[in-house]
Structures are given as C-alpha cells and as structure tokens.
Simulated assay, not measured.
Amino acid sequence: MKKLLSFLKPTLLLGVSAFLMWYALKELDFEKMWAEFLRANYAWVLVSLVMGVLAYISRAIRWQMQLKPTGYRPSLRNTYNAMMTGYLANLVLPRAGELVRCTFLRRTDDVPVNTGFGTVIAERIIDTVMLLFAVGLTFLLEFDHIRDFFLGLFSDKYTHMEHSISSLYWLGWVLLGSVVVVLFVALRYLSRLRKNAYFRKAVDFVRGMLKGVFSITKLDNQAAFWAHTIFVWAMYYSMSLVVFYALPATSGLSWGAALSVLVVGSLGMAVPVQGGIGVYHLLVQATLLLYGVPKEAGMAYALLAHTSQTLLVVLMGVLSFMGSMLRGQGTGMQLTRTNAEHHELNR
C-alpha cells in the first residue's frame, strides 16, 4: 500500500502539471510562439544561467553558515551537493528535497536530520520574508500594472469567502479549544509521558530541530549571512530581467516589470507541483499581458526562463548526486582498507 501511495502521489502531481501546461498552451498560436524562439538571443539566457549558478553557490555558503552554530561543520562541497540533490528531488516529488538534502548531509557529515531540517525551516522563513518584501516593493512601484491582476485573482473568491467567514470563525475556535485540551492533558500526565520512550524520542527530535531553527541567532558573521541572502535574491531578480533582453517582445520592458515577474513567478514556484510547471507559466504569461506583451511572446518568455533554469537544476543536481555517491564509495573503501591494515598489524 505504501509503495502504491508513493507512486501515485508524484504521478498525480505530474498529471496536474501536465494539465496546467496543456491549459496554458491550448489557445496559443504555435507559429507565432516558434517565431519568438527563432528571433531569441540565447546569449542572455546563458547569462541568466550563470547568475543561477552563482545564486546556488551563495545559498550553499549561507546554509553552511547556518549549520556551524549547531556544532557541525560540513564542508562546502558536501553542503552544496546535498542542497542540489535536494533541489533535484523536488522536481520528482515537491517538498521531498528538504528531507533528502538533510539525509545526504547526515550520511556525509553525520549532521542529525532534525538539526539539518531545522536550519532548512529557518532558511524558508527568511526566504518568505524576502518574498514578502519583494511583494511590498512591487505593490509600491508597480501598483497600476498588477492591481488588476491581483484583484482579478481574488475577486471571484471573495464572495464565497464572505459567506464562509462564519464557518471559519467557528473552526478557529474549535482548533484553539483542541490545542488547549491537548496542552492540559499533556501537562497533567507529563510525569508519565516522560517515562515513555517514544515521547522522549519525539522531544529529542523537536529539540534538535529547534536547535537548527535558532542557529540563525548564533551566526559567527551576521553581516555575511544577510549579504548572501540579499545577493541570492538580487540574482533571482537579475535572472528575470536579463531574459527580457532575449526576446524582441520583452526587450523593452522596465526593471519594474521584472520585479513583477519575480514576485508572481516565485508564487507560482511555491505551488506544490513539480518545479511549478504550468502554474509558473500561466502566472508569468498573465503578468506580462498586463505590460502589453502578447500571449505567445509571454509564454515564450516563461518557457525560456523556466526551462533553462530547470535544466540547470537537473544538470547540477545529477552531478552533485553522482559526486556524493562516488565520494561515499571512496570513503567507504578507504575505511575498509584502513581497517584491514589495522587487523593485519594486530596479527
């Protein structure tokens, strides 16, 4: 049953992505879109890929900085390989990459999975804050362009939400009451729970995870950490901007338009489908339409930006995975040889 579920989940999500891509492409003129690709300047796409590589290296350095306060010092190579392997896993099963990269770091540097996962949670919180900052900046600078997009996105749902607000209100009280009851029972029987082996393991796991989450407060160099954070998001923005120059239809767009694409594209990538496929393309195409870019050109931009970066993740992820496996085998052979030599000396 577990094997069936593990097969059905990624298959179902891939089916959703395929449907969304079909929906995004079904009304487009493929001849016009192909003409956009023929006129494209792919040198700018190559520049965006270089920026992507720099962003991933910077993220790996930042993650390594987060891990040091927990008492573990994995090498940058192992940290980078674990991270890229995790990103590769996300293309197969969304959100699985976070656990995969922590598992890899456990194998290579003995970093506990819960501690590593805590640092990943902290990383996600920081990225969310940066995205919210970008959203606020976009609303401030590009309000006239994106107002209709977001109003159209949420207006259809507003009436339904208005009718459901009473139900949500009561649901909130039920959840709050449930939390209070659970806390009361836990405190009342705390002495018994402490004797339970599973409870102790759960507490140890949570403690290790919180250690990773709060590692950000104990960084050796806060300035360098935040400099890497700003650099990563600057690269994300620059990647959106330079691909504009690859297509004649988008080459004249402003830096503000690139900010809108960054925000909307990031929201699309956050949807739990493989690599944001379909969702990213629909949202970016709709955003560019607000700036006067035809549907075919908007989709050509989305395909260029998304496909190139996805192929980059696949290439770097596969190389990182192979590098980790080969190094692991080499380390294992070295340990076996050392143990054999030690055994011969004892004889």
Rank of each mutant, 00 (worst) to 15 (best):
I126L: 15
M239H: 02
G15C: 11
G265P: 00
I165A: 12
G177W: 08
A223G: 08
K218D: 15
T229M: 07
F231K: 14
P248F: 09
Y237T: 04
N339T: 12
F117L: 15
S260P: 02
N339W: 10
H228Y: 15
W173Q: 03
C102A: 12
G317V: 06
V242T: 15
F117D: 11
G278Q: 08
T103K: 02
A286R: 02
G332P: 00
L54T: 12
Y236N: 04
D29S: 13
L283H: 01
L259P: 02
L91M: 11
R124N: 05
F7G: 04
Y158S: 01
R192V: 10
A300L: 04
S178G: 11
L67M: 15
T11H: 08
V120E: 12
L253R: 05
G177H: 06
A202L: 15
K68L: 05
F149T: 02
V92R: 07
D148P: 03
R107D: 11
L38A: 11
I165H: 05
M21W: 06
L289W: 00
G268Q: 02
V100N: 05
M65D: 09
L99P: 04
T85Y: 02
V135M: 12
A297D: 10
L304S: 03
H342V: 07
L247I: 09
M322I: 13
D204R: 13
T103C: 05
N221H: 14
L20G: 01
